[in-house]
Design a protein around this nucleic acid. Structure first.
Ligand SMILES: [Zn+2]
Ligand SMILES: [Zn+2]
Ligand SMILES: [Zn+2]
Ligand SMILES: [Zn+2]
Lengths: 167, 167
DNA sequence: TTAGTAATGTTATAATATAACATTGACTTA
DNA sequence: TAAGTCAATGTTATATTATAACATTACTAA
């Protein structure tokens, strides 16, 4: 008998988890997509993506520039914005409008319309897909308006921070 | 027998409509809320709201400043941002993150979590409420994350621009 | 009155983002 | 191999969006 599939843990980013594994797995995926899509994986692109994988917290462009500087990269604004544009265009990174900041995508490779949960306490972010969010627009809306892009950002308190709050 | 209620026309802002009526009605509502909430309706606050009511297109803070200047108001950045903050705080105005711009609220007075449809062609915006959008989050998401605020902005093509496109 | 306060005015600067052009280095191909 | 091409990165300057800090005004309340 097939084991019952548990629902995916959408809160993983907020909770303790083996982040080394998490990091390495995302990085492997990232590299694989570069190969499959025949994109050029430069040191700068790799570095910026690694920075964004650090701890599920978004980074602003100027934070990224500071970190690049420390690693000996050039660090004028266009450097960061160009690499971010590239990574966004190819689906590796998203911008969080609420924060004017950037996160590594959790489902890279496929074009998709992400929903974000943003914890205002720990400042971590988790990306969830349409199935996980259960988010649906009704028929009338679709007939009234042809949706091409949806920005959905949920701001609140994550499971972990709720747990801590209660005590 | 009561006449059957037709569904609210969520596309009104995008279509031809009696905008003088639309404008005056919104303005009357606005003034009424100031009275009910005992807020001070200053010339500046009134002017900024009127500017935002002009044509269902969002205005940037610096556009608003230009328009204020033409009307003899002071027009340094804090003037606009302070009035906008006030109007947002009291539910008369929303900020569209996608555009870094501001729109008059369509359901002023009540605290609510608006969804915006943004037409990338005519650049008009319509605000829809939860019922109209049919937008719902599933139970699991709620238990995993306590949502306090939701930013939802749908970018696409409105009914009117679709009609024009087809020809 | 005068002291308090909300609103507006003013100056300066912070934070975010892009335009325009120069240089580098890898790859092509004559 | 030398010249040409092009994507990536480097550099300088500037645009756009937003806030901090303090001054003035004008109404209100002892
Ligand atoms: Zn992780
Ligand atoms: Zn949290
Ligand atoms: Zn109207
Ligand atoms: Zn349109």
């Amino acid at each position: 008998m097939k084991k019952k599939q548990t629902s995916p843990n959408i809160s993983k980013n907020f909770m303790d988890h083996n982040h080394d594994l998490c990091f390495e797995s995302a990085l492997k995926d990232f590299k694989q997509h570069f190969i499959e899509k025949e994109l050029k994986l430069t040191p700068l692109r790799l570095k910026v993506f690694q920075l964004l994988l650090k701890d599920h917290r978004p980074l602003g462009a100027y934070q990224i520039l500071d970190l690049l500087r420390k690693d000996g990269f050039s660090s004028t604004p266009p450097i960061a914005y160009r690499v971010l544009d590239f990574l966004i265009e190819h689906g590796f990174v998203h911008k969080i409008k609420k924060l004017n900041a950037f996160v590594a995508c959790s489902h890279p490779g496929n074009s998709h319309s992400p929903t974000f949960m943003i914890c205002r306490k720990c400042e971590k972010v988790a990306e969830i897909n349409e199935k996980e969010s259960g988010l649906k627009f009704n028929k009338e809306t679709s007939s009234e308006f042809k949706i091409e892009e949806a920005i959905i950002e949920l701001i609140g308190i994550c499971k972990n921070c709720t747990k801590i709050e209660v005590i």
